[in-house]
Amino acid sequence: MTSPKIPARIAESLGTEIDMATQAWIWLRESIPHLLGAVAVLVIGVILAKLLSKAADKALNRSGRIEPTVARFLSNIIKYALWAVVGITVLTQFGVQTTSIIAALGGLALAVGLALQGTLSNVAAGVMILIQRPFRVGEAITAGTVTGTVQSIGLFTTELLQFDGVYVMVPNNELWNKPIINTSRMPTRRFELLVGIGYGDSIEQARQEMLALAAADERVLADPAPVVFVSALADSAVTMGMRVWSKTEDYLAVSWALTEAAKNRFDKAGISIPFPQREVHHITEQSSAAGEAKDVAAVPAPDQQSGGEE
């Protein structure tokens, strides 16, 4: 018996399916090494990125020169950069042309940077603040119109608590672009007290009273020694100045105490603290008329001038 013939259309269909299966098997067999290599690169790269970022974070924190926030930020940059390298390497394992992908990512990064330039400027300012450390948490600062105690420093904003208890959040770019006055950084501060005395009072007595005032307060430092001087000769008073040094934490208390004590001590010593005075010369109409009458009386009458001839 002869075997039945398979129709040509069916045979062609079976041949096509066999060829596709063969091609799939060949592709799979050739891709397995690349697939295994890509998986190995991915696993090793992720583990390596994690280990290197942790090592960088520990090294930066151990140095003591960099704030923990900056150390965490830099370690995250290292981790994400390594992840990007791993991703590109994995794609290269499959024969993907990564040049166009890198160019596209560069264009995307440029677009995002232009759109978020204000936010990125705050990040850059935050990094500079954390590296340069013009202020730390707990210090009192003045920058522009803002004055308060630093509560926290972030990459985008800095939180302050004003002396009146008002909470303020300031963008880092606003702080970095203005002069920053840190009143808590140095261990000592100088306080200057200005008091006016009358022109009839003794300057030397006032000087001795102010020096005794500084010596009576234990918070006033002996070195540098207190200094008393004549600051100005004002319109209605002689302005006496005294400069004393104290610890930074005692500055406000010392300024309040010396200002109050100066008034009490001058009162006991009989030294006046005059009010602003001004001399005013007032000329009334009556006195002006009297002056004119005197001028008229001083001129002799015509008949009195010629009376002797009659």
Rank of each mutant, 00 (worst) to 15 (best):
V41F: 01
I101N: 04
L108A: 14
T99W: 14
V112W: 10
A55G: 08
E67H: 14
G106I: 09
A38C: 02
V46P: 03
G95F: 07
A103L: 15
L110M: 11
V70T: 10
L42Q: 02
T92D: 10
Q97D: 11
I66T: 12
L36V: 15
L35D: 10
A109R: 04
Q93A: 11
N76A: 10
A103V: 08
A38I: 09
D57K: 03
I88E: 05
L91D: 00
V43E: 09
I88W: 02
G37L: 06
V41S: 13
I44W: 13
E67I: 09
V96K: 07
S75T: 03
I102W: 04
D57L: 10
A103M: 00
A111N: 13
L35W: 11
V112C: 00
R62H: 01
A40N: 05
A56V: 08
I47A: 05
G107T: 15
L52Q: 02
I77L: 13
T99D: 11
Q93D: 11
D57S: 09
L108V: 05
G45L: 01
L36T: 07
N61C: 12
L35I: 15
L91W: 05
L108Y: 11
V43F: 09
D57E: 14
I88K: 02
S63N: 12
A38N: 04
W83Q: 11
Q97L: 14
K54E: 00
V41E: 05
I47K: 08
N61Q: 09
Q97P: 09
K58E: 02
T69C: 12
Q93H: 14
G95R: 06
G37W: 07
G106S: 12
V43K: 01
V90H: 08
P68I: 10
F73S: 00
D57A: 02
I78V: 15
L74Y: 10
K50D: 10
A49W: 00
T99S: 10
I44G: 12
S53W: 01
G95S: 11
R72K: 15
S75Y: 02
L42G: 01
R65A: 03
S75G: 01
L48N: 07
T92I: 11
A55K: 00
V86W: 03
A84W: 13
I77M: 09
Q93Y: 14
T69G: 10
V86I: 14
Q93T: 14
K50L: 06
P68V: 12
L105C: 05
I101V: 13
K58G: 07
L105I: 12
R72I: 02
A40V: 15
T89A: 15
K54Q: 09
I88A: 09
A71V: 01
G45H: 01
S100Q: 00
V112T: 13
V70I: 11
R72Y: 05
T98H: 00
L110H: 08
I47R: 11
A59N: 02
I44M: 12
A84Q: 13
L52I: 04
K58R: 13
G87R: 07
A109H: 04
K58D: 08
A38Q: 02
L35N: 10
D57G: 04
I77D: 08
A111R: 03
T89N: 04
V90A: 06
